[in-house]
Amino acid sequence: MLWVECPNCGSRPFEEYRYGNVFPVTPDTITDADARNVDYAWMQDNIAGVTLERWFHESGCRRWFTAKRDTTSDEFLPLDD
């Protein structure tokens, strides 16, 4: 089972959470404002590796938080490393 560490409540099973997607990163090579908006909103990078993600602890404190996860191993990493 995937366990997610909530900064307020501690470690809980992932069923208690709502996944809020990764932080979108728009490449600097896209300079047109409209194109940047499209890339930000719609283009998913689907990174295999470490990503910054938003999670919502729906069954606990009901707060959003940011987590760093390795998508290849589902390991949650400390934010400050």
């Binding site: 409540c9 809980r12 099973p13 069923e15 069954s59 606990g60 404190c61």
Partner: peptide
């Protein structure tokens, strides 16, 4: 205060 699902209920 401990928060989370108890018997599947928040």
């Amino acid at each position: 205060v401990a928060q989370g699902q108890i018997a599947g209920v928040p």
